[in-house]
């Protein structure tokens, strides 16, 4: 039923090669104006790297995205913990959270433009609103399922509320905080591109502009840059999580 590690690696590579072959054939058949094949995308990608505009826009966009994402973590994690540990907060916040989490971010974008304009505040706000609820919900799930035995033991050994938070609740929550951050980050990157494509600024704006060209090779290059950004950021968070709280992924239960 399960494959050996080496076999899996080989099959991974075979899968990627088959995908590239299919894409190459499809691209040659459709033409570069419909779908540029990898043999044209690679030079286009290197070209864009050399020109530097792509990386410059990406760096600016990522900085703004991180501002929104950091704010979402700073608000979402405490709120999630409070909801998970204090019943009154849970009851008061749940209707709002469940309403906001189903609100589609794209529909909020036109309203946010009226509220914030199209600059820094607007993009931070869109990223914030897109990622915060996922961080809240993941943290909440973690905080709710902390083993009551742990809390009881700490209490009977006379832990103060501060000690309880720092030594019991927070370490038990690490896995969920990192999982929440990872899910939130994916939504933050999605929101970043969404907001920028809507107002045709930054990296998303570049994607929009490039999409108007007759050649799709640069467009695909931009998508690949986004893919590398997203995979890289998720990987960094995972490494950081592993460093702070070794084996945290194994301790996540069903979320």
């Amino acid at each position: 039923m399960t494959l050996q590690r080496g076999t899996t690696r080989v099959l991974n590579i075979v899968g990627i090669l088959l995908f590239l072959c299919a894409w190459e054939l499809g691209g040659r058949w459709l033409g570069a104006d419909k779908l540029a094949p990898p043999s044209l995308v690679v030079p286009a990608f290197i070209d864009l790297l050399r020109q530097g505009e792509m990386l410059k826009e990406l760096a600016t966009s990522v900085r703004q995205m991180l501002a929104g994402f950091g704010l979402a973590c700073a608000v979402g994690m405490p709120l999630g913990i409070a909801m998970g540990r204090v019943r009154a907060v849970d009851l008061a916040a749940t209707p709002w959270v469940s309403m906001f989490v189903v609100t589609s971010v794209a529909s909020l974008v036109p309203l946010f433009i009226l509220l914030f304009g199209t600059g820094f505040a607007f993009r931070v706000a869109v990223v914030f609103i897109a990622s915060v609820w996922y961080i809240v919900l993941t943290t909440y799930n973690g905080a709710r399922t902390i083993d009551p035995g742990l809390v009881a033991v700490a209490r009977s050994f006379g832990a103060s509320p501060l000690q309880m938070s720092a030594k019991v609740v927070l370490p038990a929550l690490y896995p969920y905080l990192f999982a929440g951050a990872r899910i939130g980050l994916i939504h933050a990157i999605r929101a970043m591109v969404l907001a920028e494509m809507f107002v045709i600024l930054g990296f998303g704006g570049l994607v929009h502009q490039t999409g108007l060209q007759a050649d799709t090779a640069p467009l695909i290059s931009l998508l690949i840059a986004l893919m590398i950004l997203s995979v890289g950021a998720t990987w960094l968070l995972r490494v950081f999580g592993e460093y702070v709280s070794p084996g945290y992924e194994q301790r996540l239960k069903g979320s």
Binding site: L3, L11, I189, L194, M197, V207, G211, L219, L223, L226
Partner: peptide, 23 residues
């Protein structure tokens, strides 16, 4: 094992960025 890398890669790209392609 063969499809997983492709699915992961596609999942990592925000869908909205495919809008120019759909057009």
């Amino acid at each position: 094992a063969m499809l997983d890398p492709v699915v992961t890669a596609l999942y990592a790209i925000p869908t909205i960025a495919f809008v120019p392609f759909f057009i």
